[in-house]
Write a protein that binds this DNA or RNA. Structure first.
Lengths: 156, 156
DNA sequence: ATCCTGAGTCCGAACTTCCTACTCAGGGGT
DNA sequence: ACCCCTGAGTAGGAAGTTCGGACTCAGGAT
């Protein structure tokens, strides 16, 4: 069972491609979304997503393997011990990915009930949004943001 | 050829799921990444990604269909007219998605050559980063950001 | 001892992706 | 006019994934 993700597009020098190696398979990001919604158990994931159990077992395995989720034993009142899956710090660092997808979907594929999730400063309850900012915190308009080659670029 | 994307997880009330319907298939986000890198032509995409031509044709078609790319005719010196694929405004709005994946990959799956792309204010060249901010522009630490149900949540 | 349940595994059918070969629309060369 | 060339596909079969249902296994409950 070598598991061997397919090395998409040979370009492992790209951090987007490296992220997609972990997160880019069907269902993976929806599993992560459910984890952010507080689901932890195998049956919670199958019930909320309708994913086949073998695929779920496989995806949970790779997410654990890559440190997005961790397995943790739990025991329910009068049940035997089982494992649940909780977001690690690396998993919680996917919040911007979730927020970016959600913002794009809200803007460009709206449904009747548009934003289902908002972000806030957990301490104060102030609303928060994912934006590009300068180092000093000035919010930039997305249209003004450009890219430039970083230090890790191949010097070809 | 009904094209019928699989309605992942029945939950179309989720903007993440709706985004993934367009963007979640294998190769799609790498094609978008290449589009941000300035590629526009069929052969540029096959050359840089190594994707099979039939899959590329299919993905470009759905990206056009959903308004992420648009087809535009071009004519090279002494060649016949062909079509190229350029990001629409909706496509350019995927920059936060790209940046979020890139940041996660840089942090959690680093390679020797870590950040290959940086973001900047296109006018001034000041560095920019994708962060959660309050309405007034105070940058929040990711660990302090939480979620709350938005107005579009099912009132169940 | 037997039943029950959550969490899997197994397996064959259905669907995707991959790879190679073919097509098609012009433009250029002769 | 005819043939060759190239970019951009399409076609078709092999290989790889996903799906859904049946099976397993480890306890605890009865």
């Amino acid at each position: 069972m070598p598991h061997m993700t397919a090395l998409l597009g040979k370009d492992l020098n790209c951090s987007i491609a490296r992220s997609l190696e972990v997160l880019g398979e069907k269902w993976t990001l929806l599993i992560v979304r459910e984890a952010f919604r507080g689901r932890t158990r195998f049956s919670e994931f199958t019930d909320s997503l309708g994913i086949a159990r073998d695929i779920l077992a496989n995806r949970l395995g790779t997410l654990v393997e890559y440190g997005v989720l961790s397995r943790r034993p739990y025991r329910e009142e009068g049940e035997r011990e089982r494992e649940e899956y909780v977001l690690t710090p690396a998993g919680r660092d996917l919040l911007p990915v979730m927020a970016a997808f959600a913002a794009w979907g809200d803007r460009h594929r709206p449904s009747e009930s548009s934003p289902t999730v908002l972000y806030e400063n957990a301490g104060s309850g102030e609303l928060a949004e994912l934006r590009f900012t300068t180092a000093e915190g000035r919010i930039l308009d997305l249209a003004d943001v450009g890219t430039r080659p970083g230090p890790g670029t191949d010097p070809v």
